[in-house]
Design a protein around this nucleic acid. Structure first.
Lengths: 153, 153
DNA sequence: AGGTTGAAGTTCCTTTAGGGAACCCCGAGT
DNA sequence: ACTCGGGGTTCCCTAAAGGAACTTCAACCT
């Protein structure tokens, strides 16, 4: 299929989707995050087509989400998260929380997070970066920002 | 293409992707969230193919993310977020934040959030639901949970 | 020196999902 | 009876995912 690119939209959600919205990409980032940094590892773990894995990795490197670097004299490479990519893990942590709450069923969560600061098994929650109170779907008004379509500059 | 289903994986991220990971789905949820509740509105705003919009809406209703309800004697319907769907907006808010920080460029964010509790223009940040401290990619250890593959029950 | 190995891709073919436009259904209003 | 408008369905075309086979290149083995 010919897939529409979202990057022209004046919407940060759409733009983010153009970076990580393709199939497999979030799972690749999850794996890289937990230490699966090489092509063969990723391919074996995910069962993804090698062709698609190549495309996704190249795209993520182009976007500055992953860094590709040699780890041997031979042509061997590993992929690691950049700062930009590390901040994307926020997204995965929120997805994990939602999946745990709504899709895990009787069995419970497959994976738990232990928070370094307090040592507890925890999940993330969303808070306001100004006042620290909870900040979720019903807690905000949306206003046009400086980058809204049609604004000069 | 035949797309691999992720729902068999013992991973809440993969399962969440099977609900909202298809192209357009996050943008549909964004629109429904901000009050675009009808088929024609969504189609016009997104420029999505009507066929795909139908498929996505049906899938979201099946998954319990949206509720489809009549708003007229005539066969007219609107789609609204369920509780399950409203919690998914967390994901969109995090995507917006990342896109604002890394992709908005000179122009700045297209949209701003004003937090009801404090009245400030704010973004979300991730915190631990136990201790309230910041909780991001580097702040956690991963442990196997009760729903890990291979565990009985 | 010649052959083997293993990581990291490439190539090629098949299948299926998305784009896009046209068409259909149905209840209300005139 | 006829139109209108929301909410879809149908159809064809193209491009993307699956999957398996093939390639490349440096190091290692004998």
């Amino acid at each position: 299929m010919q897939r529409t690119s979202f990057s022209g939209m004046a919407c940060s959600i759409a733009r983010t989707l153009d970076v990580v919205g393709e199939p497999w990409t979030p799972l690749i980032l999850r794996d890289v995050w937990v230490g699966m940094n090489r092509f063969e590892q990723l391919q074996a773990d995910l069962g993804i087509s090698r062709k698609v894995l190549t495309e996704r990795l190249n795209h993520l490197v182009e976007q500055g989400v992953l860094d590709k670097r040699p780890y041997d004299q031979r042509p061997r490479y590993e992929y690691v998260l950049t700062a930009k990519g590390t901040e994307l893990i926020d997204l995965l942590m929120v997805m994990k929380g939602w999946g745990d709450r709504w899709l895990a069923g009787e069995a419970g969560p497959p994976v738990l997070y232990r928070h370094h600061a307090c040592g507890e098994i925890s999940d993330v929650e969303l808070r306001c970066d100004h006042c620290g109170e909870s900040m979720r779907a019903g807690d905000v008004d949306l206003l046009p920002g400086p980058g809204v379509a049609g604004s000069a500059t």
